[in-house]
Write a protein that binds this DNA or RNA. Structure first.
Lengths: 158, 158
DNA sequence: GTCATTGTTTTGATCGTGTCAAGACAACTG
DNA sequence: CAGTTGTCTTGACACGATCAAAACAATGAC
């Protein structure tokens, strides 16, 4: 498994290092994490590391096409390993949680704008805003619980 | 004109003040402006004002449903007065320019995700990424694109 | 018209996310 | 196993945005 991770990184044209392996595993374990969450996940297993190192690794992954960077309004940038399949996202307005959604109609038929204003369009990005199950429940029960819940979608060790 | 602006603000439940009138006019004149652009537009006509005042006004407008706040990845927040008509946006990856696009099929028929993961969906947001006419021309002519390496991870459409 | 209430603006400080630059260091090549 | 090249570390910093408190002005009652 470690070998496969290494191969994945090498195949992207990047050198294999401990921080990169750790970030890759963290992202596979908890997709849609932001830089700080990734940092907290990799920190214990790396002797000495820094937030900047994580930024560097995430930037390299993104540039190499290994990861995708999404930036929902109001959240810091988040990263995921699903690339190249034009999928979209559900974002919870309560806790910021992000979930994947497959492309709406397979080949994105409805994503051709009626007026292009002369733009050379490269990509259509769809974001669904709503409230996740937890937030709906908490809301119905307690009342004002906006923004209170933690952002972590899972919690354990990779 | 001025009276209509005042009525618009009053109708939203807000007090009418000089900064608000100025910001309203600035936004109508230049939609999709960010806070700093608005500030620079209203600065000359207000004796003393500050960026914070603009932030305050824009925040009040947004909360009152008078303006809409959009936050394209890589840009500061932008504001527009078109609200309540579920339209979408074209964003230039070169210069950050934003243009409006009417809802793709009128009533947003294609914006129902296949899997909702239990989310209570409130809204679908569509952003088209591409390059505006100016940027395409500049690119073809000069070659050195201003900010070629940007956020857009080109997802190859079959 | 005048006054009090309430909301708005101003001022200044501060936070969070993310970037830049330089030196130390480790991974791949031959 | 050594050299080259890219990566990590460290520290400083830019930028957008927010918060708190005091000065102030717009609305509504009298």
């Amino acid at each position: 498994m470690n070998t496969q991770d290494a191969d994945t990184i090498r195949a992207a044209g990047l050198k294999v290092t401990a921080p990169r392996l750790a970030v890759l595993r963290a992202l596979r374990y908890a997709p849609h994490s932001d830089a700080d969450q990734v940092f907290r996940m990799v920190e214990p297993e790396l002797t000495a590391t820094s937030r900047q190192a994580v930024y560097g690794v995430l930037g390299a992954f993104t540039e190499a096409g290994l990861a995708r960077r999404i930036e929902p309004a109001g959240s810091p940038a988040r990263y995921e390993l699903r690339v190249g399949d034009n999928h979209h996202h559900l974002v919870c307005t309560g806790c910021g949680r992000v979930e994947d959604v497959d492309c709406v109609h397979g080949a994105a038929p409805c994503l051709v704008p009626s007026q292009t204003q002369g733009f050379a369009i490269a990509e259509a990005e769809v974001t669904f805003w709503g409230r996740c199950v937890d937030c709906v429940v908490t809301e119905a029960a307690g009342g004002t619980s906006d923004r209170a819940s933690d952002i972590a979608t899972a919690s354990a060790r990779p």
